[in-house]
Amino acid sequence: MSMYSLWGALEIGLIFGLVALGVLISFRILRFPDLTVDGSFPLGAAVAATLISAGFDPFAATLAATLAGALAGAITGWLNVRLKIMDLLASILMMIALYSINLRIMGRPNVPLITEPTVFTLLQPEAVSDYIMRPLTLLVAVVAIKFLLDWFLGTQIGLAIRSTGSNPRMARSQGIATGSMVLVGLAISNALCALAGALFAQSQGGADISMGIGTIVIGLAAVIVGESIFPSRRLLVMTLAALVGAVVYRFFIALALNADFIGLHAQDLNLVTAVLVTVALVIPLLKQKLRIKKGVR
C-alpha cells in the first residue's frame, strides 16, 4: 500500500472518528438505537456544500452544517420523548425524512466542490502537500473535539446524560429531566455526525445524496473495534477507543482493498466491514473462553 493511501486512510479514519464519537453517545451512553446518523451525515455534507458553492465562508458553512445535524438529532429525540414513538422507529422516520430534505437543500443529487475553497484549502500552507496537511489538520481538530467532549460529559449536564442512559428510573428519582437529556444527547451525537459529513464533503470534493448509506454501520464498527483494543468503561478511554477504532478500521479497509493477492475491489467494502465487525465481536468472547479454561485448569 502506497504512502498516499496510508495518509488517505488516516484522513478518512479521523473524519469517521467524529461519527464514532456520535455513535458512542447515542448507542453506548444513552442506550438509544439512533439510525438518524445515516441522514445527518449527508445532511451536514449537503448544507456545507450548498453554502460553500453559494459563496459562503467554509468555516461558517461547516458550523451551519453542525447546527443542522444537532436540529435533526433533537427532532428524533422529540419524536421519541414527546410523541412517545419507539426510539428505533423515531430514528428511522427521521432518517427517511432527511433523504428528501437533503435533496431539497442541494436541489440536485450532488453538489461538487472541486473548484471551491474549503476549510482545508484555507488552512493549507504552500510548503506542505495537501494529502499530508489535511490529516494533520483533522488530527488537531478531532483531538480537540475529543477533549471538549470529555470535559462536557464531566459537567453536571453531561453526568445527567450519562445517568439517563445508565438508569433512567434512578435518574428521574434524582430529579433529572431524562427526556430533555435524551434530546440534548441526540443533538450532540448528530451534530458530530453532521460535522463529519461537512468535512468529508470538503475533503472528497463534493456532497452526494447517497454518501450517508451505511454510515451507522461504520460508526458502530469503529466503536466495536475500538472497544476490542481498549476494553475499558472509563470515559476518557472510551472516547479514545472510538477514535482509534475508526482509524484502525479505515486502515484495515485500505489494506484489504489495496492488497492484490486478496483480490478485493471497491464493491467489496460492505463485505470487508461485515468481516471486521464479526472479528471484533468474536475476539472478546474468545478471550473470555480462554480465561475460563485457564481458571478450570
Rank of each mutant, 00 (worst) to 15 (best):
L51C: 07
L271S: 14
G8A: 02
L153N: 00
V275Y: 10
M211I: 12
I25C: 04
F59L: 14
L51I: 01
L139V: 04
F32T: 03
I218P: 03
S166N: 13
R104T: 11
P284F: 08
L243K: 10
D34L: 10
E11L: 12
T178R: 06
W151C: 00
A64K: 10
T164A: 12
T239C: 04
T115H: 13
D130T: 11
A259H: 08
G69N: 11
L240A: 15
A160P: 02
G73R: 06
T215S: 09
V247R: 07
M95I: 10
V23E: 08
I218Y: 11
L138Q: 10
R162T: 06
T137M: 14
L10N: 05
A221E: 07
A97G: 12
I218V: 15
D87H: 13
V142S: 11
T36E: 08
G107W: 00
I209W: 04
I15E: 06
T178D: 06
A70R: 03
L89M: 12
G205P: 07
E126W: 08
G69C: 05
V244K: 03
P125K: 03
S129F: 04
I105T: 07
M86V: 13
L269E: 12
V47M: 06
F251Y: 14
L67E: 05
V225R: 08
V244A: 13
L285T: 13
G55M: 11
A242P: 01
G17W: 01
P284A: 03
S228Q: 09
D268L: 01
L21I: 11
Q156V: 15
A90L: 04
A221D: 04
T121Y: 00
A49H: 02
I292H: 14
A70L: 12
L199A: 08
L63Y: 06
T121N: 04
L98K: 04
T137C: 02
P42T: 05
L186A: 07
D34N: 15
S2M: 02
S166D: 15
G44Q: 00
I101Q: 01
G175H: 02
L79G: 10
G73Q: 00
F59K: 01
Q267M: 14
T155K: 04
M106F: 00
